[in-house]
Design a protein around this nucleic acid. Sequence first.
DNA 1: CGAAGTATTGACTTGTTTCAATGTTAGTGG
DNA 2: CCACTAACATTGAAACAAGTCAATACTTCG
Lengths: 252, 252
Amino acid sequence: MSPMNTNAQGLLELRLTSHDRFGQRERDLLSGLSWRIEDLPARRIFIHEGDRPAQSCLIVSGAVVRSQYTAEGQRQILSVHIPGDMPDLQSLHIGRMDHDLETVSAARVAFVPHGELHRLCAASTHLNAAFWRESLIDAALHRAAIFRNAQLDADARLAHFLCEMQLRHSAVGLVDADGFDFPLSQELIGEVLGLTIVSINRASQTLRARDLIRMQKGHIQVLDWDGLVRYAQFDSSFLHLRLGDEVLAAAS
Amino acid sequence: MSPMNTNAQGLLELRLTSHDRFGQRERDLLSGLSWRIEDLPARRIFIHEGDRPAQSCLIVSGAVVRSQYTAEGQRQILSVHIPGDMPDLQSLHIGRMDHDLETVSAARVAFVPHGELHRLCAASTHLNAAFWRESLIDAALHRAAIFRNAQLDADARLAHFLCEMQLRHSAVGLVDADGFDFPLSQELIGEVLGLTIVSINRASQTLRARDLIRMQKGHIQVLDWDGLVRYAQFDSSFLHLRLGDEVLAAAS
DNA sequence: CGAAGTATTGACTTGTTTCAATGTTAGTGG
DNA sequence: CCACTAACATTGAAACAAGTCAATACTTCG
């Protein structure tokens, strides 16, 4: 298990190099980025629907959700983002935000100007491909969410979501023998899965009764990875992770 | 209303230039692409989950769906694609397909090798950005689907889907005063919206009774655009279309 | 004409929501 | 250290939207 990397540039390298082995040139280009670090409190909407950001962000610590709202103000969480994610890469090429970005817990977020990213992509087709790929994996996560929310019942839906969270936390070294910290309340998980807090509560009881997981306030532990995967019909390939041995070991 | 363009290169230019005004250089690069045209029958899976395509495709005519399957073989349609769409752009930078591509009706599809697209993107940052943007709009469609399927009831869900289809068909000049041809059966629409054929049938009756749409086998006409938009809580901005006046006029 | 695909309808069942009450936990200030 | 508070978790009962099952009708096409 690699130590958790709380440094923006290190997290980004970890992410981008999980697919491509970069040369020194790419490393130098990356290290030339000027990050502006911001520490945000919990429940802070820091990018709003309709905004036209001139920068993208990287989550360094904490959790962030993307959300859209109904006319009645009911929130739908579109995706959950954890350290290492760049949840607004799309603003590089689509001016207008079609959703909000909001912290769940207190979070450290690093911002980098679009201009610098554009220059980077123009300077290196490798880096261009790596960032593009990040945004494509984002779309793959969306597809998995559409499948999950439409095809699985409440219990399996929660199981599927927890499988995804376990793997994505593993990939950034945030899972240890006790599991991982996860700040979403049952209410928020409900807003991810299109279920009410009551259903989430009952689903989590089912999974706990089957000894698949442990789930306490702010912390999740997968007790039976294979069982959970089976229960959730979870196919990890959509994450398009190149998981190292240590990650797979931690996951099981 | 522009005449329908059944030529691959013309469709692609129409799409890419809806955001960026290209110079002659970009036009020349695009016209250098060597398309292989294929005419496919209805219900043909032409790219399978797990494939590693060496080419991307552009839909010239007909309709195509992306789908994933449950363990029991139940299909979830992730998105619906129409002429002008490039539904497997992601294979440019993510090797493995995480879903199938299948024709609904007979369809004409144009294929172009990844190598040529990579060369194009390396040769022009404008074209690189344009293709990247296409894949980002794809992700935006996914987000709208997550929202729609989780937050709207059966009637509104169908209305929302029809709003999206009307606008996307408009953008490629496929809508006239009588509406547009649309080959998805009620059963398939159900697989898009996460509903059964029975619910789709009843939802379509609701919308017809309110004089919002006409919906006959293979053809859809929006009778009251504003009413349909209101009923669906539809916000067209997620499509990130730069709609010309003629498109907006046709839509309303 | 027959056959296959598609659309429609009604009766019944079920998973999830809604509503409402109660329990638990962590943090705050007296 | 305990009382107080707010957020979060849990439980039960009733209501409801959508699913399931099953029969019937319409359309298209060989």
